[in-house]
Design a protein around this nucleic acid. Structure first.
Length: 163
DNA sequence: GCCAACGTTGGC
DNA sequence: GCCAACGTTGGC
């Protein structure tokens, strides 16, 4: 079996709802509640075991990439869509043909130095990131290998030390 | 907390 | 299948 090339993603989360602290505490977490078809397609079809995930804090300052996770397992139906008690319950989703998917991700590391949105915006190497594209609100986004490497380099840089 | 930019829904 | 109304996202 030919090894599939590792791919990279950015997952947004509002830290008020679910932060990197929660992620570190939980270890492995199903990424539930994605109710956008574009993101659903990625979760169902593209995001695979072993892929890298940048954990991004949105909405609440400081907005930044704050950690790294790894995808464990394949895309599977998001169970919360069938639970009438759940926040993300979707009465129109047919269990025979689920509408929404999730993947599980595992906490790997916290970036010693979070890479802020401001920093991404100002870095010439990161201008193509969907994160800084005007009007782009996708909460699950593809990240290129070069962008991944660059973000990690910035995030792991010792505080106070020049690049 | 505001609101612009999106995405989805549903009447027609 | 159009599109107005509504809901959500997420930077500011």
């Amino acid at each position: 079996m030919a090894a599939r090339k590792k791919q990279y993603w950015l997952f947004k989360s509002e830290p008020d709802a679910y932060s990197i602290d929660d992620m570190e505490r939980d270890g492995v977490e199903p990424w539930d509640g994605i109710r956008n078809y574009q993101a659903r397609n990625l979760l169902r079809d593209e995001i695979k075991k072993g892929d890298g995930v940048l954990f991004y804090h949105s909405r609440v300052a400081p907005m930044a990439v704050v950690g790294v996770c790894e995808v464990v397992g394949e895309g599977a139906p998001d169970e919360t869509q069938f639970d009438p008690e759940a926040k993300y319950f979707d009465p129109k989703s047919d269990p025979e043909n689920p509408r929404w998917f999730w993947v599980h991700i595992r906490f790997q590391e916290r970036l010693p130095r979070p890479v802020t949105l401001k920093e991404v915006k100002e870095d010439p190497a990161l201008q193509d990131m969907m994160l800084v594209r005007k009007g782009s609100r996708l909460s699950i986004q593809p990240v290129s290998a070069a962008e991944w490497k660059h973000i990690l380099k910035l995030g792991r840089r010792k505080p106070g030390k020049k690049s």
